[in-house]
Design a protein around this nucleic acid. Structure first.
Lengths: 223, 223
DNA sequence: CCTCCCTGAACCAATATTGAGCCAATTATT
DNA sequence: AATAATTGGCTCAATATTGGTTCAGGGAGG
């Protein structure tokens, strides 16, 4: 019997969620309970749950609990399934189309509080010492920009991309392409984007984001 | 009973992989476990697994484990569900971002045959006498342009949009917005796009498509 | 004898889990 | 209103797991 690791727990949780386990009140059991149920440490459960959080499957609130974001599944499963087979290169191309626009929308529409959230994600990513932390807050930075774009469809497309990026080929590529030097380049590019957002300058935000994505693409696809 | 060598183990492993043995979380058991299970030395298992690695069937990470490259995806039901709830206005905004790009890609990448298919869709739509026929070939016109964009991810996003457009709020809006005059406007705009494609002019194709989508948006959302 | 492959063992390096503790936000209880 | 209990956020050192590597043998077949 294989040893349980965080990833196993994450998939177990997903399975139970999609089988409607905790749908009744949309709330997952406390981490401590799950830990004892699975027979692992809470830290491990926490890691598993943060995978779900990265997916957008779940949101967490200190003192309240962890809640499902699940609404009803649909018949678009097939389309989405095919999306899993598309190449990272194709997706990066589209990302360069959408994300600068998201940044521009954000510069125009975001509230001060939302921008603060973006800034915070950037700050934590900049100060992070290890790769998983950086990656989490890097993703969060981008996510929060989409979040204040005020376009629900765009946000959901980004959620899709986020899920796809957490899967097979991407995982490998990210691992391969990471280095301390690149991390600091990403951070300074994020800073440029953030500055443009804070100046409420859609054009600069869009350009800065595009420049950043080009860097990412170069590193990821090795060109 | 012949003695087991690395090659035998490699084929045994492949058989078990393709029978979906470890697909659930995409992870193979540790080498040490496999060794004791097959009753061979770890070194032998290691050689067997490196065959799979050379195949690309598997990737290995020190400290993490050995993972299948054909992993089973998570459930994206949540994203899809929320997507159904997004507004036509939001989607039209994104369509104006993606579809001009698709047209530009098509102008650059499409084969002559593919362009012929686009032309044909336009021709049938132009000559159609009734609303359902026009609508079908109108959609087909757009679809075929995406189809020759040579970007699979983009194509799938368009499929998503197509599905969404055939649902709740859209249906009403299209009915409301239809008129003979608008139909002929659409046709002439399609013609402009098609001409640009045939001239292999990405810039014009993109602009023409954008202009068309703005017309559609105006009619649909009544502005 | 030589070659090839497996064996068994030890050690290394990267990564993950553990367990314990404390904090902060929220909710429940008194 | 004050207090307690619950719950997620976070840290850290210790330990365990896991692939990477090397090396000295052993046995089978040419």
């Amino acid at each position: 019997m294989p040893k349980l690791v965080a990833n196993d727990i994450a998939t177990a949780l997903k399975k139970r969620i999609s089988s409607g386990e905790w749908i009744e009140n949309g709330r997952m059991p406390p981490e401590r309970d799950l830990a004892s149920e699975f027979g692992v440490a809470r830290n491990t459960v926490r890691r598993a749950v943060s995978f779900l959080e990265d997916d957008g499957t779940v949101v967490r609130h200190v003192g309240r609990g962890t809640f499902l974001t699940t609404t009803n599944p649909a018949s678009m499963a097939a389309v989405v399934g095919r999306m899993e087979g598309t190449s990272p290169a194709d997706m990066m191309e589209i990302r360069q189309l959408l994300e600068p626009a998201a940044a521009a929308f954000a510069a125009t529409n975001a509230s001060a509080m939302e921008l603060n959230a973006v800034r915070e994600a950037h700050k934590i990513a900049s100060e992070s010492q290890d790769m998983p932390t950086f990656e989490h807050w890097d993703a969060e930075f981008h996510h929060r920009i989409f979040a204040c774009s005020r376009n629900d469809f765009l946000k959901e497309i980004h959620n899709l991309m986020r899920i796809l990026r957490n899967q097979a080929p991407w995982f490998e590529m990210k691992k391969r392409s990471f280095s301390e030097e690149r991390r600091s380049i990403y951070c300074s590019e994020h800073q440029t984007v953030l500055d443009a957002l804070l100046r409420r300058d859609p054009e600069s935000a869009s350009q800065a984001m595009l420049a950043h994505l080009r860097t990412v693409e170069r590193n990821l696809l090795g060109r």
